[in-house]
C-alpha cells in the first residue's frame, strides 16, 4: 500500500509579513524563516505510524512550489518519507488551492496511492481546501479534520473520527483509496532520527516542472492584500514592563476586576 503525504512550506507564524510592491503577495527574502506547515507534520507522523503497524506500506511526500520548498520535501524525508517529489512552479506568488490540488491529482493519476494525507489547513493561506479538491478530482472519498484513523486489515476501508465543534467526533468509514486531512493533536510528530537525516541528505528529490503538467486554469483570483484596520485594535499599554504592569493593575481595579 502506498501513502502520499502532501506537505507545504510556510513562513514561520511569528515572522513579520509585509505586502510586496504588486500588492498581491507578501515579500519574502533570503532570511525569511521558512518551515514545514505544522499540520503536515502531524500528517507525516500518522503515515509513518501506519507504515509501522501494517505490512508492506510505503510513504512518499510531495510539495508544489518554488525552488525553496525542496528543503521542506527533504524535511519530510528526514522524518521518514522514502521518496520526495517536488513539483516546481515558476515565481513565488499565491497559488490557489484548486491549482495545487489539480497538480497533485495529476501526479497521482500516474502513480497509484491508496491513501493521500494532507494537513487540515495551511498556516499561511488558511484555505483548508487542497485535500478535499484532490479527492473530488480523483473521485475518491475524503474526510477532513481527522483525529483518529484505523485501516481495516484487508486494506479496503479506513475508519476515521473527525474532530467537530465542541470536541465532538464524527465517525465514518471510507473505502480506499481515500484522502484524509489530518488535524493537529492526532499524534506527537517525531524528531528525525540521525540515520534518517543522513539517508535523506543523500537521497534525490524527484523534481517535475509544473509547466510540463497540464493544469487547469485557476478558479479564483487574488485581487489585493491589505493590513487589518488599525481602528479594530485595542489600546496598547505603553512604557516599561513595570509601568505597563502598574497601568494594567489600575485598569482592572477601575473595572472592579480586582
Amino acid at each position: 500500500m502506498k501513502i502520499l503525504i502532501c506537505v507545504k512550506q510556510v513562513i514561520d507564524s511569528q515572522a513579520p509579513v509585509t505586502i510586496d510592491e504588486s500588492g498581491k503577495w507578501v515579500k519574502y527574502g533570503d532570511s525569511s524563516p521558512f518551515r514545514m506547515n505544522r499540520y503536515d507534520e502531524f500528517a507525516i507522523e500518522e503515515a509513518l505510524r501506519i507504515k509501522e503497524t501494517l505490512n508492506d506500506v510505503s510513504v512518499d511526500a510531495i510539495s508544489v512550489g518554488p525552488p525553496r520548498v525542496s528543503s521542506t520535501v527533504r524535511k519530510a524525508m528526514e522524518m521518514g518519507a522514502e521518496k520526495g517529489i517536488h513539483i516546481l512552479t515558476e515565481g513565488d506568488f499565491f497559488i490557489t488551492p484548486f491549482e495545487v490540488a489539480s497538480t497533485i491529482a495529476s501526479y497521482v493519476q500516474t502513480n497509484n496511492y491508496a491513501l493521500i494525507l494532507t494537513g487540515a489547513m495551511s498556516e499561511d493561506d488558511m484555505n483548508s481546501q487542497v485535500g478535499q479538491v484532490i479527492a473530488e478530482i480523483l473521485n475518491r472519498p475524503c474526510a477532513t479534520l481527522v483525529m483518529h484513523q484505523e485501516i481495516r486489515e484487508d486494506k479496503k476501508e479506513v475508519y476515521v473520527e473527525r474532530e467537530i465543534e465542541g470536541g465532538k467526533r464524527e465517525c465514518l468509514n471510507l473505502q480506499l483509496p481515500a484522502v484524509l486531512t489530518i488535524q493537529s493533536g492526532i499524534n506527537i510528530p517525531r524528531y528525525p532520527s540521525l540515520s534518517n537525516v543522513l539517508r535523506a541528505r543523500k537521497a534525490q528529490i524527484l523534481t517535475i516542472e509544473a509547466t510540463a503538467m497540464n493544469i487547469p486554469a485557476k478558479r479564483e483570483h487574488l485581487v489585493a492584500l491589505s493590513y487589518p484596520e488599525v481602528s479594530s485594535r485595542g489600546t496598547f499599554i505603553e512604557g516599561s514592563q513595570r509601568e505597563k504592569a502598574k497601568e494594567l493593575v489600575s485598569i482592572l481595579h477601575e473595572k472592579s476586576l480586582i
Binding site: 488551492p97 484555505n127 483548508s128 481546501q129 478535499q132 479538491v133 473530488e136 479534520l145 473527525r162 478558479r219
Partner: peptide, 23 residues
Amino acid sequence: HTAMGLDLAPGLATRLDASCITA
C-alpha cells in the same frame, strides 16, 4: 466555515465547476 462547511465546500465546488472561497 464549520467542520461541516469546510469539509463540504471545496469538493462541492469542484463537482459543480464553481469557484470556492473559504472563511
